[in-house]
């Protein structure tokens, strides 16, 4: 179509403002429909996950080699340390064996209900998707593995986070240090319940603890069974005071360098029973059958 030069120039000047308007539209769209953007990002991450794995592999090998070299250098000191530690551990092994026996006897006497063994899958962290305003990692998955949203991720030492999005080949794990992470925890020595709130720094804060029972420096922090899908007693870290009146949790897991994660599925661990006295809704027929005699009602 023949257009005049002036018209084409005017059109060219309009392109940039139009694109800026579209960008504002994208911001609003991202705020209004977060799922769409997340789906797009997870799709891209799914496509790129093998490539990211290729990048992570040599790094891990390199770290392994350098770790080996360091090990060889201080082999002597390490041996001495391990020997003393081994002697101490043997003592603790005896104690633990005795206690385990005693525990088994006591549980047998008390008709203890054993906990269900949770199922878990392990995976490699392929990408740290932490940005300026989020703390999360991406986990590579086999397409057949059943990882569900809400799964609990742990490394060798403690709680790492929760699964928030699941793609076909990857899952995103929101770390406990993220500013939107809030977890109910128990402080082990003072037996106080509190909330651990991430704030994007390395040390999540402890909030909502009882004012007459303040956290003690150095005490262990474990999860609290208050919410579904998160059982009680998983190790989280220990309490540390940055300054008086500001307790934080030092996470037990190495959150700045997550390599491998185990994702546990505790989804159906505790199902609350039906509330007593509630009349079950009839299935099929529309109206609720009334009792024939008023005095043979709900309690009759």
């Amino acid at each position: 179509m023949p257009v005049s030069i002036q018209f084409r120039q005017a059109l060219g000047k309009l392109v940039l403002p139009a694109l800026i308007l579209v960008a504002c539209g994208v911001i609003l769209l991202g705020k209004a429909d977060r799922g769409l953007i997340e789906k797009l990002r997870m799709h891209t991450a799914d496509l790129l996950a093998p490539a990211y794995g290729l990048v992570a592999w040599p790094q891990e090998k390199l770290r392994w080699v350098s770790g080996n070299l360091q090990d060889i250098r201080n082999l002597e000191a390490e041996n001495i340390r391990l020997r003393t530690e081994n002697a101490a551990l043997r003592h603790w092994y005896d104690v633990a064996a005795a206690l385990a026996d005693e525990n088994a006897t006591l549980k047998a006497n008390l008709h203890w209900i054993p906990d269900n063994a949770p199922t878990f899958v392990s995976g490699r962290v392929v990408r740290d998707t932490s940005g300026l305003y989020a703390r999360a990692v991406l986990l590579a998955l086999n397409p057949d593995t059943a990882v569900r949203k809400g799964g609990i991720a742990l490394d060798g030492a403690g709680l790492v986070g929760r699964v928030t999005e699941v793609g076909r080949r990857s899952a995103r794990v929101l770390l406990i240090t993220d500013s939107s992470s809030r977890l109910p925890v128990t402080l082990e020595s003072s037996h106080a319940a509190a909330i651990m709130a991430g704030d994007n720094s390395a040390l999540p804060r402890i909030i909502f603890y009882p004012q007459d029972n303040v956290p003690i420096e150095g005490e262990r922090v474990v999860t609290n069974g208050e919410i579904e899908s998160l059982p009680a007693g998983l190790p989280v870290g220990h309490v540390h005071y940055l300054r008086p009146g500001q307790p934080v949790v030092v996470p037990a897991a190495a959150l700045d360098h997550v390599d491998m994660l185990r994702v546990f599925d505790y989804e159906d661990s505790v199902v609350p029973p039906d509330a007593p006295g509630r009349v079950p809704l009839p299935t099929g027929s529309g109206a609720m059958p009334l009792p024939a005699h008023p005095d043979q009602g709900l309690h009759g």
């Binding site: 911001i27 991202g30 990002r41 300026l132």
Partner: peptide
């Protein structure tokens, strides 16, 4: 401008920040 727009979308998809902010910065 159109190339900057495409690159902005690409950076936004890969960066896990709030959507569109990076794009707007690049266009400005």
């Amino acid at each position: 401008s159109l190339a900057v727009f495409v690159l902005g979308i690409w950076a936004d998809i890969l960066s896990f920040g709030p959507a569109g902010v990076m794009l707007l910065m690049m266009l400005i």
